[in-house]
Design a protein around this nucleic acid. Structure first.
Length: 764
DNA sequence: ATCTACAGTGGGAGTTCGCT
DNA sequence: AGCGAACTCCCACTGTAGAT
């Protein structure tokens, strides 16, 4: 009320000038600024207004064509009530409507296109208890048809004695309390309770003779709701249009269509709270009254009233843009002011930025983890597949070596020679056929038997390890840049591999000369160039020191001879017809010298010891003159394996193709010279598998560039990308095909492969 | 009176898959 | 390759119940 101000005032002259009937206006200047008029002055019936809106459509936002709603001779724009096209304004004995658009002041019942109704809120001149005045109230037409509205229910609580000012009401005095107050007849006090409202009433006894009505609409039959038992149901926009608190005795009421239940569902509890708080103004409302008003007006279901408190508290706690808590008044809320909203927006934006940054950080972290995991999985898949292939190759080789061993043992028996103790005959071919590697492992047959020196690596030859903690099987991956496995072969001006060069544990002093005319100097897997010389360090069989060993391939006539010469015993070289025989002999000497027991099992790889299985060496061999003339040497072994697998996969799923291309059968003449394989040479086989992967690229590149011995050839050792591509292929295969059928296919194929294909030479 | 935990819901963003 | 539909996942919002 105090906030009311004359926004616009039109003088009678102005009205007259505009063509209005200014004489009809009461120019009682005393009523112009008075807060309330005296209802007993007899003018209430004349001055009472009844503005009824029907056929509400949309709120009217403009003001150019609006009209002033005047009463008591004063033209005001106070709390605007937006009406829309088709709205009607009625009860106009003292109501003057100034239609700006038509520049005229209208009186009485109007039906206008657009009208802005201004009330004189707080003028308190309304008399609500006078039914008779309402009987004479104009009947507001709906859609242009005059229709008498239903009789209103009358005085809310017994007439004008009820006196509660607007301020009190807006602070939460419920109508029930008002009613209680009125029924007691004490006029201005409500019995005490723990309720804050009543405390407020005690502290602020009512003196003003005002009261607020709520009105409702019955679908055009505007009915009067005085006691708040029922209420209006507004949408937010609708509610904005009816921000017209009326004073005691008012028969001004608005009558929108009742808020439909289906539309009620579209507003949230917070929307409803916002509506009632907007009505309450800056003073806000107590939470209980917010709930009560929302429920009574049908904005929310009564059963959900309890939900509202949590929502509003949460809203304000989170920095709501809509609500704000009133300091010093627990449970009181008001709509946020513009400055509050700005502050809230700033805080919310800051929070949003923080959240966004955090989310971005988490997302980036997750993506990094995902990439790492994908990379790891790819590597695991590749490693798994590669190991599986190696295992198959190993199985096949084991079978062949086992057969060779049996043949050798058979020969020894035929000649009546004793069988060396390190050769045990327990590993049957059946075990190997089953793929049972345990039977061919280096584990002792019983506790009295001594474990072999090594299965993969000749430990007897290697320096003793000072740590007792077993090392993990996985070795640190060497980068392609530093690994000799993937390193390019260094060549001289004549295109020959340069020496000396370090290849793994060995240092190659001389790559020797390829002998291509005598087939005994190469096999399907290895080349034995005459004069090949390498050096490596190892334990001495004479002293406890480590000593340099020189390995050399000699011309033995039909085949090569493999010589190992210790630096501390150069006069007693070890010479054998196979590299494995040489290293086994050496290891026996070392073991015997150190343990005094010659009855040991030795397992070692001769080619590995000589460095013949080193990928770098094998690639370098291809650069030697006449290397391309070797008939049996097949560096593309793995390519063929993969081609076969691919062919089988295309024609069947997990079943070995019967039409697998037969593998090349090696002639006996091409086999290596007879040699004694004392044990299973796993390292040999692994190196073989690795070598083929690398050799494939080397030979293919060599052939593609037409390299010759006289041309400076830069061998493609781009095995890294090739392996990566291979990895992708394997990974893709692993993704697209079930793992188990693939294994079965490979395993079955390997087991069904003719053993002669894999049989090393010279063991017939 | 105030706050919290929990579940339901809807929308936005990203991904997958089929079609052209 | 491009496009769009279908789907999934995540998140904010909302409502409810209960704890403090």
């Amino acid at each position: 009320m105090d906030g009311l101000e004359k926004v616009d005032e039109i003088t009678d002259d102005e009205v007259e000038a505009l063509g209005g009937s200014g004489s009809e206006l009461s120019d009682d200047s005393s009523s112009g600024d008075s807060i309330e008029s005296d209802p007993s002055d007899g003018s209430h019936s004349d001055h009472s207004t009844d503005v009824r809106h029907t056929n509400f459509v949309e709120p009217y936002e403009g003001d150019d064509k609006s009209a002033l709603y005047a009463r008591d001779g004063s033209y005001r724009r106070v709390h605007t009530v937006h009406a829309s096209k088709g709205s009607s304004v009625g009860k106009a004995d003292q109501v003057k409507v100034f239609d700006v658009a038509n520049h005229e002041v209208k009186n009485g019942i109007y039906k206008v296109d657009k009208i802005e109704v201004s009330s004189t809120q707080g003028q308190a001149s309304y008399i609500s208890g006078d039914d008779s005045s309402d009987e004479d109230a104009p009947i507001l037409p709906r859609d242009g048809n005059s229709k008498k509205h239903s009789k209103r229910r009358g005085d809310p609580v017994g007439g004008s004695e009820l006196q509660v000012n607007m301020s009190e009401y807006s602070r939460g005095i419920t109508k029930n309390k008002v009613r209680e107050k009125a029924m007691r007849g004490d006029g201005d006090r409500v019995a005490s309770s723990t309720n804050n409202y009543e405390k407020h009433i005690r502290d602020n006894p009512s003196t003003e003779n005002t009261y607020e009505h709520r009105v409702k609409d019955d679908g055009g039959n505007a009915d009067y709701e005085s006691d708040g038992e029922e209420g209006l149901h507004f949408s937010e926009s609708e509610w904005n249009c009816y921000n017209l608190p009326a004073a005691k005795g008012s028969n001004v009421y608005l009558a929108p269509t009742r808020f439909p239940a289906e539309r009620r569902k579209t507003i949230t509890l917070l929307d409803a709270a916002e509506m009632v708080l907007r009505e309450a103004g800056s003073e806000g409302l107590h939470l209980k009254d917010i709930q009560s008003r929302c429920a009574k007006r049908g904005l929310i279901d009564a059963s959900k009233k309890k939900s509202l408190d949590a929502l509003i508290y949460r809203e304000t706690q989170r920095g709501s843009q809509r609500f704000t808590k009133i300091d010093g008044q627990p449970g009181w809320f008001a709509l946020a002011k513009d400055e509050d909203k700005i502050e809230m927006l700033k805080r919310k934006a800051a929070r949003a930025d923080k959240v966004r940054l955090e989310r971005h950080r988490k997302k980036a972290s997750s993506e990094r983890k995902l990439r790492y995991m994908k990379k790891t999985v790819r590597m695991m898949l590749f490693t798994n597949t590669a190991m599986h292939e190696e295992r198959e190759i190993l199985l096949s080789s084991i079978k062949a070596l086992s057969r060779n061993k049996r043949q050798l043992v058979h020969k020894l028996k035929q000649k009546g020679e004793p069988i060396p103790s390190f050769i045990h005959e327990s590993s049957s071919s059946e075990d190997i056929e089953k793929g049972d590697l345990l039977h061919v492992s280096s584990r002792p047959q019983n506790e009295n038997q001594q474990a072999p020196a090594s299965f993969l690596v000749p430990h007897a030859f290697m320096a003793p390890r000072h740590h007792s903690v077993p090392q993990p099987a996985m070795r640190k991956r060497r980068s392609p840049e530093t690994s000799t496995k993937y390193a390019e072969v260094l060549v001289d001006t004549q295109g020959l591999p340069t020496v000396p060069v370090k290849a793994g544990p060995v240092t190659v002093i001389n790559f020797g000369t390829v002998e291509w005319e005598r087939e005994g100097f190469h096999s399907e897997r290895y080349i034995w160039p005459i004069g090949f010389t390498s050096e490596r360090m190892g334990n001495s069989y004479l002293t406890e020191e480590r000593v340099l060993y020189t390995c050399k391939i000699l011309d033995g006539g039909e085949g090569p001879l493999f010589e190992i010469r210790a630096a501390d015993d150069p006069e007693s070289p070890i010479v054998a017809t196979s590299p494995t025989s040489s290293i086994v002999t050496l290891l026996i000497k070392i073991k015997t010298a150190r343990t005094g027991n010659a009855n040991v099992k030795i397992a070692a790889s001769g080619p590995a010891f000589f460095g013949l299985s080193q990928p770098y060496v094998m690639k370098a061999f291809l650069l030697l003159p006449n290397a391309e003339k070797l008939k049996q040497y097949n560096p593309d072994y793995l390519d063929e394996v993969r081609s076969e697998r691919k062919a089988n996969k295309d024609t069947s799923t997990g079943v070995v193709s019967a039409s697998a291309p037969p593998r090349k059968r090696r002639s006996r003449a091409s086999n290596a010279p007879s040699k004694t394989h004392a044990a299973i040479d796993n390292h040999h086989i692994q190196a073989h598998a690795h070598a083929h992967i690398s050799m494939r690229s080397a030979t293919s590149d060599l052939a593609g560039r037409g390299a010759s011995s006289n041309t400076r050839v830069k061998l493609s050792t781009d095995s890294g990308p090739k392996l990566e591509a291979y990895s992708k292929t394997v990974t893709s295969r692993a993704h697209n095909a079930p793992a188990e059928p693939l294994k079965l296919t490979l395993m079955q194929r390997m087991l069904q492969r003719p053993t002669s294909n894999k049989k090393p030479s010279g063991f017939s």
